[in-house]
Amino acid sequence: MSFRFEIRLSGSGGQGLILAGKVLAEAAAIYDGKNATQSQSYGPEARGGASRSEVIISDEDIDYPKAEQLDLLLALTQEACDKYVGHLRENGILLVDGSLVPNPPAGTFRIVDIPFAEIAEKEVGRSLVANIVAIGAITELSRIVSIEGVESAILARVPKGTEELNLKAFHAGIEAAKRAQGG
């Protein structure tokens, strides 16, 4: 049976969401041999304001490249959460960092709260890799891209000498998602 999995990464500029979307799409398309599209958009106010990246992954050709019913929504601002939560399909996953989204709305979806920024700071030692922690969590929660594929995509983009730091962040995200699911 074929699948189509839609992910939206939303928040504000500077959170590394566009890059996170590219890493997920490259993991799926280049390293896992699936079909993937990745798009980005910025709020009309200014860059540095709202930021959004969408990734669609499928095992077949993708007929339409815009997300319509999200399987997973990562929201890293309350505003983004409120704006996009209605696009989540039933039984989809709303992934938030509770310190940034204090009031996630209830609905027919599953809420997973992972403190990406805190994990990046305390477990990895660099707050900047919060987006890589989020990629790890999405990898674990979606099971739509392989761990090896994402590792390869991360390694293809990070500066030489920072591989260990970034992979540590990625695996911290995977472990945090397992804990959040009680696994």
Binding site: S41, R47, P65
Partner: peptide
């Protein structure tokens, strides 16, 4: 061709 944006997105200098 599919447009991701409904309109031209205007930001600081772009």
């Amino acid at each position: 061709v599919v447009a991701y944006d409904d309109q031209l997105m205007r930001g600081a200098g772009i």
